[in-house]
Amino acid sequence: MNLALPRRAAAEFAGTALLVAAVVGSGIAAARLSPDDVGLQLLENAIATALALGALILTFGPVSGAHFNPVVSAVDWWLGRRAGTGLTPRDLAAYTGAQVTGAIAGAILADLMFGLPAVTFSGTARTGGNLWLAEVVATAGLVVLIFALARSGRSAAAPAAVGAYIGAAYWFTSSTSFANPAVTIGRAFTDTFAGIMPTSVPGFVAAQLAGGLLAVAALALWYPDSGDAADAVVVPRLGEEENR
């Protein structure tokens, strides 16, 4: 039996909040410590994010699966619906709400930890076909990786593999790999290194959803029965009796 939905949603809220706090907080620290070197700032931000993501998957994975991403949750529901695995529509709604509100809370937390106003909407414009294409690629690659690991019985590698992918994608995508609608929305609430202008959010989210659709098509080709392993995304959740 899976853990109760409120308990899992709380884990998704906390995990996504801490992920965004890591992204935003490390961006603020990088800008302060290396004010004259944007490349070094990005490196510091990428390393901190990758390490934090791996640790958060280890922490919250046994409770909720550690999705922290509405696209991952939506694909989990879609692929698992016929096999009776993965999220139900009710789960998906709860996870998505928890992830989005958690992301906003994480951005506010990071701002407060660094002595900034709790909310200052970002003035950093991130728009253009090249950035949207990068988000399609980053999101599709992330989703395929997660489901490939689950279907091939290698979910234990997810903390390291997912963290490594996001850390690398900071550098091989022009958008620096947001790859997550909730994180994108949260990062609009901070006018810092990691921020994104609110008017740029819809384009990024649309590209991320397109990336999720591309991932579904790729998984149908390469892992046609990946829905059978939807309960193991990102990592397997424990049953109620196992987690006591």
Rank of each mutant, 00 (worst) to 15 (best):
L43Q: 04
G102P: 13
E44D: 03
G97E: 12
Y223D: 12
D37K: 10
D111I: 12
R237H: 01
G203H: 10
L33N: 08
S122K: 11
A10E: 05
T184A: 08
A140T: 05
A110K: 11
A138G: 04
A157K: 01
F13Y: 10
Y170K: 11
M113W: 10
S26A: 00
L19E: 10
I108T: 06
A230L: 08
A210H: 05
A105D: 01
A9Q: 08
A66G: 12
A168S: 03
F114D: 01
L109W: 06
L131D: 04
V234W: 08
N69C: 12
A46P: 01
L92E: 02
G86W: 01
A31F: 12
G128P: 08
G54T: 04
A83F: 10
A220H: 05
F60S: 03
L58T: 14
A66M: 15
Q41C: 01
V216A: 00
R81A: 00
Y170E: 04
F13A: 15
A138W: 01
A232P: 09
V162W: 11
V201H: 00
T127R: 12
A103G: 08
P117T: 06
I104N: 02
G167K: 15
L33T: 08
G239R: 15
A168W: 05
L5V: 12
A217Y: 02
V143R: 05
A55N: 03
A118E: 07
F121A: 01
L56W: 06
G106I: 14
V72I: 15
A179Q: 10
R154P: 07
Y170H: 05
V38L: 11
L214N: 00
A74G: 07
P224T: 03
A182V: 03
P70A: 13
I104E: 00
G106C: 07
Y95L: 12
I108W: 06
S226N: 11
A22T: 00
D91A: 06
L3A: 11
G106L: 10
A66H: 10
L149C: 05
G25Y: 15
D111A: 12
M197W: 03
V216C: 06
G167F: 14
E241P: 09
A164Q: 15
L5A: 04
A4E: 13
V72A: 08
W222N: 04
P6T: 08
I47F: 08
A157Y: 13
A229R: 15
G54M: 13
T190Q: 10
T49K: 14
M197G: 00
G186K: 10
D36T: 07
L221E: 04
N69P: 15
G163A: 08
N45L: 11
L109I: 10
A179M: 08
A188C: 03
D36Y: 15
A168I: 03
F68Y: 12
S175D: 11
A207C: 02
A138M: 00
G195W: 04
H67Y: 09
G61M: 01
A207Y: 01
L112Q: 11
N130G: 07
V183K: 02
T16P: 04
F147A: 02
G163P: 09
L58M: 14
W77L: 09
P117E: 06
A232S: 13
A218I: 08
V205R: 13
G106E: 13
L109H: 06
S226L: 09
A118V: 09
N243E: 15
T16D: 12
A11C: 00
N243W: 15
F204L: 03
L214M: 05
E242W: 05
L149K: 04
F147I: 03
